[in-house]
């Protein structure tokens, strides 16, 4: 990801040699995903995801807007990714046109928006004139590799967590009820795409990679920043729990055997299953936490006592 950080030759050699001997600096095995830590802010739709030292925050917001003319029944959904020097010295302020930033933003966009993870038809209020515009702002807070994976988890968790104000429509009049007046409503999520990124290393010469049939290329899951700097190629697979490939992006890099790529996809599926469970689990827990007085305060309870 970072062009400006340069790793010293000896350290690079050490990491590569370690990889050849099946070792990684942080002691993980090649196909071990870092533990994902998901925490919520005070508001709905404010999620921070930590994977090792990588930290990504996603905030969902919404407002009422006019739908596109050619799609009167659909709401608007926008994902914006923002990198700032806060995440690391390699990022420039206000410059999001670097190769990796563009690639990262595009993959998240394809994984979440184009795959229809959010039910945009559910955002329609009055066909052709009013709809919800949902916006996901992703901020990179700290960078230690795996931005795509972390961002995807953050966006999906935040979408699941977010609640928009309730509305009522009377003819052409739309009333938005403040959150303290009426219970806000969740967004319609159709599936949960999870990105898993593989990094490839070529332990031998290029000639062996192109012409040889040893297929000795090394594939590791969820690389750290240093590993990302040294990798020869990368593959991002996005899957969901329904065994659907949502998006695959191997934009060049080290040529890899088709069968081993398939194997990677299957490995990614187990991770997808686990992460989906985890996301749903934390959402449930947070929900319970927020509503722990619900039973006390509800009128049903009052009647019982």
């Amino acid at each position: 990801m970072a062009k400006d950080i340069e790793i010293s030759t000896s350290e690079a050699q050490f990491i590569l040699e370690a990889l050849k001997q099946n070792g990684r600096l942080d002691g993980r095995s090649f196909d071990q995903f870092r533990d994902v830590e998901i925490s919520f802010g005070r508001e709905y739709g404010d999620v921070t995801v930590k994977m090792g030292n990588t930290k990504v925050q996603c905030r969902i917001s919404c407002q009422i807007a006019q739908p596109y003319e050619d799609r009167p029944f659909e709401g608007l959904f926008l994902i914006s990714t923002e990198s700032s020097p806060m995440a690391g010295p390699q990022f420039e302020n206000g410059n999001n046109t670097g190769e990796d930033e563009v690639l990262c933003a595009r993959i998240i966009e394809k994984a979440v928006r184009r795959s229809g993870a959010l039910d945009v038809e559910g955002l329609c209020i009055v066909a052709g004139s009013k709809c919800w515009a949902v916006r996901a702002d992703v901020h990179f807070l700290d960078c230690d590799g795996g931005f795509i994976d972390a961002s995807c988890v953050a966006v999906m968790t935040a979408l699941l967590h977010f609640k928009k104000p309730d509305i009522s429509v009377l003819g052409d009049r739309v009333t938005v009820h403040p959150v303290d007046e009426r219970e806000p409503v969740s967004l319609g999520i159709l599936h949960i795409p999870i990105c898993v990124t593989f990094s490839f290393f070529n332990p031998q010469d290029t000639e062996e990679n192109i012409k040889g049939d040893s297929n000795s290329e090394i594939a590791i899951i969820d690389a750290t920043l240093k590993e990302e700097l040294l990798r020869d190629g990368t593959l991002t697979v996005t899957l969901n729990k329904n065994r659907e490939v949502v998006q695959v992006s191997k934009a060049g890099g080290l040529p890899m055997d088709a069968l081993s790529l398939m194997e990677n996809c299957h490995k990614a599926y187990t991770i997808t299953e686990r992460l989906t469970e985890q996301i749903l689990d934390v959402i449930k827990k947070d929900d319970a936490e927020r509503n722990k007085y619900a039973t006390l305060l509800s009128s049903e309870n009052a009647r019982e006592t």
């Binding site: 990679n209 192109i210 012409k211 593959l235 490939v245 998006q247 695959v248 992006s249 191997k250 934009a251 060049g252 890099g253 040529p255 890899m256 055997d257 088709a258 069968l259 790529l261």
Partner: peptide, 9 residues
Amino acid sequence: TEKLSLLLV
């Protein structure tokens, strides 16, 4: 070969 340099879904 069967080596994929680019794969986009």
